[in-house]
Design a protein around this nucleic acid. Sequence first.
DNA 1: AGCACGCCGACT
DNA 2: GTCGGCGTGCTC
Length: 732
Amino acid sequence: MTEDSPAKSILPRVVPVMVPMPADRPYSYAVPDGAKAVPGSIVRVPLGPREVAGIVWDGAGEALSAKRLRPISEIFDCPPVAEEMRRFVDWIAAYTLSPPGLVARMLLRAPAAFDPEPWTEGLRLVEGAGPDRMTAARNRVLEMAGDGQAWTRAGLAHAAGVSSSVIEGLREQGVFETVSIPPQPVVAAPDAGFAKAELTPDQEAAALRLRERAGTDAFSVTLLDGVTGSGKTEVYFEAIAAALERGKQVLILIPEIALTQAFLERFHDRFGAKPGEWHSDLAPKKRERVWRQVAEGQVRVVAGARSALFLPFKELGLIVIDEEHDPAYKQEDRVFYNARDMGVVRGHIGDFPVVLASATPSLESRVNANQGRYERIVLSSRFAEAALPDLATIDMRKAPPERGGFLSPVLIDAMRKTLARGEQSLLFLNRRGYAPLTLCRVCGHRFQCPECSSWLVEHRFRGQLVCHHCGHNEPRPEACPECGTLDHLVACGPGVERIAEEVDRHFPEARTIMLSSDMMGGVKRLRLELEAIAKGEADIIVGTQLVAKGHNFPAMTLVGVVDADLGLANGDPRAAERTFQLLAQVTGRAGRTGRKSVGLLQTYQPEHPVMRAIVTGDAEAFYEREIAERERAGLPPFGRLAGIIVSAATRQEAESHARGLRQAAPRATEIDVLGPAEAPLALIAGRHRFRLLVQGTRRADLQGFVRAMLERGPKQRGSVRVQVDIDPQSFL
DNA sequence: AGCACGCCGACT
DNA sequence: GTCGGCGTGCTC
């Protein structure tokens, strides 16, 4: 071709760009002359009054009047977002009924990483040069830097154990010259053969099978189901080794990774290097470096929270989802998704294996295994030194606590004996604060949240009444706001603060630590406390949920569950499953190093299937029963079923939405309001959230009528939020 | 998601 | 007479 036709040279080239906002399709932008924008390119584009980062999408840009068309401002020098990833975004958008722009936004969360990492200034020893006077500090620095390598100022100062002013002094004297050094890897490369753990025959067989499945370039899902302490981690490490040997990148999803630093150590022990970390607590600078190096393929393994699913891997070849049943995998704001399910979808799109691991798999994963969609590998025994704890219920009707207390004499006695042996006790109560309800003894006034009408929880340590639903808080008054009577407010029911107080009363000499997610000092403080406990610097630990998650406390030989019934009676279709999982996880904290250990569950219904399953250890029977029950009730994840979450101020309002939905739904569809949605933390301006179950419809029908409903009017759109909650495996 | 525009209450 | 609440609408 010799010359472009005139028409061609006038018309600008147009590409679709996905911008990080709720657009339901990409916008069109002009590509500046000479610029090279390919699908996946990350670009800076003008959007209204500001500039944003976007991703060049697939297909042709739609024709647009030249007046509205604006040019791309910059094409970042960054590896393009892979085609797989773009399909993943489109899939999630379609599945969750979210605008694709909002999904794409989750990929664009590391703004400064789109530019290459800058080279940094380093120092190198000048050959033959020496300082005017030698000091001990200077000597150490010269020894460290004697290898002729370039060092960063801070790195050298740290390695030599001197302050950076020593280095600066030497540089001024010409002992060091400044050189440019390329960006350093954020983590060292893992070595698949570094230190394979000794496995029991059981584990070895599982690892072998997992290597076979997970070691090939084909989609598969394997459910690794093993009791706490059976060494699941060591087993799936072998699958990771196999993927690394294939030259693939690996993603390990872990709930609450910010608190499970011990995991990084275990990984290091096996692979000789830490995995790249990814979670919301990461320092911004580190975040950018991890993002960039994942994109460039320098970071081979990432251990991260659910958002790590949206990292721009260059050659991802395995996803491991640890504690796959964990509700923390659900995101319930903006784009509603479950990272476990999306991880499976990601593996399907990328055609690589996925491993789900849990001691207490979710019902849907068990069903998927039963139906042959997943392969299930079972690890049934703890490894040699770690014995399973003896579990028993304490019937609170027969052994009630003393007046004003919440701990049964049976539990207190067990704690006393544990203390006497110099071992640790854990008391678990899944309720933050001091007391869940405060009322006035004179007039009966109950403290309610003015925003959302749930009970206010007293936090005595902070002197506040707090709404756990919407975050509202107010100082705890002396007098009743209703009748004005002073000093007659009474706390009802226990929270961890109150249990810690009771423990102090019984065991004033013991070292008691209370752990709660709302503790002063945040994640950092929690980490320190967990380390202190692991080192044996506490006798009694009182904690919420977070103590159930993956920490190993070697000296812990007694676990007491203060209220095992909590959560069984809230109308949630997952109540029994969730309670079983939580109790199994928390009692599994005991006896991890082989000492004889005990788990005691305080309950008013010792004959409840959940209690029976925990005490007898017969999880199989429990799962079968739960699955059968769900099938009978026609609840997800079985059959063609879906859930919708609406947010509304009251249950009445939710009911009215349900009526509206019923009218919009196909005739074969049934809709029921099932009470509060599972996640208490998703806050939609202090509104209550209810889960509607929509039954008897195919996914396409459901999406159709949900869309129809959303289009019925602006008023409806404002008050109804929709989440479609179907098991995606049914549609792969 | 941001951000501007636009129409009704308490104030320099 | 203005400052400012957040309801509605738009961004290539």
